[in-house]
Design a protein around this nucleic acid. Structure first.
Length: 227
DNA sequence: GCGACAG
DNA sequence: ATCTTGTCGC
């Protein structure tokens, strides 16, 4: 798939902050996307100074995996809370170049607007791939919220600086919720519905990001014990 | 100063 | 994210 070169990744922290302030201004709200055909999920696994990025393409209706892309390379950036995108995007974009099917939506393991500058990984990625994106985080990052109901599908909005920036969603009854946020080119209620669509019978994490998570961990184990 | 802190 | 086995519970 095509990539729109937005910026390089050889940057200082202040330059990264400047980019995030610019991204924030360009986030688009859009009408619901109801019947996507292909949806992708992205995740990375790390070991030593390496990482593997995995993109799983799934048929929205049947939830069958229709394409799998992997890309392994050295990681250039350390993890700094608030700057995850600068660590993960370089490898993700190399994997994206190999993607053949054209997805209608892309899910990321991390946040979108649920970020101090409304410019988390999912939001940042959308400006390179020009696709609607959604962020699914397993842990709380910013904002405040009331605890969601205990039953599957219950959610509460997450607020920061007076605005709704995401939702804490109970994907399984009685299980720790996940954090959903708009990346770009989509709206929050649509993101929540799409996330629930991919929730399997027993997994907390929707299959769209669970599949690349499982595969990237498997690849990491293989490449790690090989050395 | 203290605590929090996506992956 | 990763280091790590068994074990309690639905």
């Amino acid at each position: 798939m095509n990539i729109h070169p937005y910026h390089s990744f050889d940057l200082t922290v202040s330059q990264m902050q400047e980019i995030q302030r610019e991204l924030r201004k360009k986030i688009q709200e859009t009408p619901d996307i109801n019947q996507p055909k292909i949806v992708c999920g992205v995740d990375l696994s790390y070991w030593e100074d390496q990482a593997v990025a995995v993109i799983t393409g799934m048929d929205y209706a049947t939830k069958e995996i229709v394409e799998t892309i992997t890309y392994t390379d050295t990681v250039s950036h350390e993890y700094i809370p608030g700057f995850l995108a600068f660590r993960e995007l370089p490898l993700f974009l190399k994997a994206w170049e190999q993607l053949k099917l054209e997805p209608d939506i892309v899910f990321f393991d991390g946040n979108g607007m649920l970020h101090p500058q409304r410019a988390g990984l999912a939001t940042h990625a959308s400006f390179f791939i020009q696709k609607p994106t959604i962020g699914i985080a397993k842990n709380h990052f910013i904002g405040t919220y009331d605890p969601p109901g205990e039953t599957q599908g219950s959610y509460e909005y997450i607020r920061d600086q007076g605005e709704i920036v995401g939702a804490v969603l109970r994907t399984q009854t009685g299980i720790k919720p996940v954090y959903v946020s708009v990346g770009n080119q989509i709206n929050l209620s649509n993101a929540i519905d799409l996330t629930m669509h991919f929730v399997g019978k027993h997994s907390r994490i929707p299959e769209i990001t669970r599949q690349p998570d499982l595969l990237s961990k498997k690849i990491r184990r293989e490449l790690q014990t090989k050395r």
